[in-house]
Design a protein around this nucleic acid. Structure first.
Lengths: 260, 260
DNA sequence: GTAAAAGAGTGAATACCATTAACCATGTGA
DNA sequence: TCACATGGTTAATGGTATTCACTCTTTTAC
């Protein structure tokens, strides 16, 4: 407490009016700290107890305030869930980016393989968060909040769009011609392409959707634990699927794949 | 009230000790009625308000008793959810059986197509129930209850096992030989086969899993509404997938497919 | 036919939860 | 120094699950 006051005085002495963004008033600093702590507590609670365990009261306890205090920071329970959603989205996309950065930049096979593997690993290690981002819990947030819808679908679409664009440019892909695609489906694919911001033929978009459908199915099987009674370890199924998907894309499993 | 008493007296006059199963005591009849009403109310509440709207208090209100009364019928809220789960499972499997019965018994393509289509249709029309049977809500029940795990996976596996067995017997399937399957995966497939009660090579089981992975991915995409921003109508994607899956199985889309 | 036993409901109590309103102390900035 | 904004508090309302003690009714046994 005394130390905090001191550093505040030091900050005041340094600059009053101009206040560079780094210099925060005591209130601003405390507010930032409490918000950070609350977000962390919310995330921890959600992970440990499930989304339903993420309650205003529990977060308040964790950060040492009374529940109503949190209403100065978040829009009630829904706001807390939204905050966790935002944090988790950022963390998830960052994890993916890291996995890709570990690969040889010219090795598209390992790029795709590692990204997909990272999705699976993260999802298994963060089942509640998976549910929030890509599962059932998502629809509930999306219903209430306005800006949310399509966030993760678009982020992921953009992310996987990069290697697909390269595959397309390199002429490796065998895709369906526009006129061979059912017109209704074609229109949907164009909408998807426009909303995600991709710039290759809808035949390539269709390939992305076909791949994602399979990946997503495996993810849900694993995370929701329906087939655990037999498929305790999902890796064999995953690798089997990756061989198939890479094959669809005219690639082979890369010997240079680097997983953590 | 008076009428009820009368019928009870008639029942008493008819038989006391032997009491054929059809003859119920007044209490038993009232109990059966209230339980039936409560299950129906629980199902309706879940469908309309979501699983979180399925509360003991709400069901009690719906059937006109106080909440503690329901503890004589169900094991609290978890018991209510479990009851809905059981009812929904039966209804779902029945819907599938009906869809198959509508097809030409010798037309395996329409058999598989109709069954898969029925799964999709039912899931879209019963999103909350889908979540309970095959989605995120399932894991929560499975955690607490003992008998539950694998119910739906095994029911579905057995159901789709029938046409796959016929395909296999007819020699249409191109499958991987046992020794070409990763040993760990092979062991998992054998476990699955044993637990579901199938009796064909694990290469066929692998085909089932490959198909289900894709179907399930599409189901979750549709029910959890992640890609609604582009794929408002899932039918084009579904039919595209079915063409692919039937192709894997050496079949073609049947002109005799009958959907409701 | 009557009395004991079993069953099914109620009300009260406990313990959570979310959310709002009124209020108070303190940091901020002129 | 002083007015004001901010961020916390307590209190109150109303929702939830669940347990317990109790009562009334039905069933069953004698």
């Amino acid at each position: 407490m005394a130390g905090a006051a001191c550093s505040r005085l030091a900050g005041m002495a340094g600059s009053r009016e101009t206040r560079p963004v780094t210099e925060l008033t005591r209130r601003e600093r405390l507010r930032a700290e409490l918000e950070r702590d609350a977000r962390a507590a919310a995330r921890r609670l959600a992970a440990e107890e499930g989304v339903e365990g993420l309650t205003v009261a529990a977060v308040a306890r964790a950060v040492g305030v009374t529940p109503p205090a949190l209403y100065r920071y978040f829009d009630g329970r829904a706001g807390l869930v939204r905050a966790v959603y935002d944090d988790v989205t950022a963390e998830f996309m960052d994890t993916l980016a890291q996995a890709v950065r570990r690969q040889d930049p010219d090795d598209l096979s390992s790029h795709l393989h590692a990204a997909t593997r990272a999705v699976l690993d993260w999802s298994m290690a963060n089942k509640v968060e998976f549910d929030l981002l890509m599962g059932a819990a998502y629809a509930k947030i999306a219903d209430s909040e306005e800006g949310i819808p399509t966030v993760i679908a678009r982020e992921l679409g953009g992310f996987f769009g990069v290697p697909f664009a390269r595959l397309w440019r390199e002429g490796r892909l065998r895709i369906q011609a526009d006129e061979d695609i059912d017109p209704v489906l074609a229109e949907q694919l164009r909408t998807y392409r426009a909303r995600v911001g991709l710039d290759f033929p809808i035949g390539v978009v269709l390939l992305m959707v076909i791949c994602w459908r399979q990946i997503y199915g495996l993810l849900c099987m694993v995370v929701y634990e329906h087939h655990n009674f037999a498929f305790d370890d999902p890796m064999p199924l995953f690798e089997h699927m990756m061989d198939h998907l890479l094959g669809i894309l005219g690639l082979e499993r890369s010997p240079r794949l680097r997983v953590p």
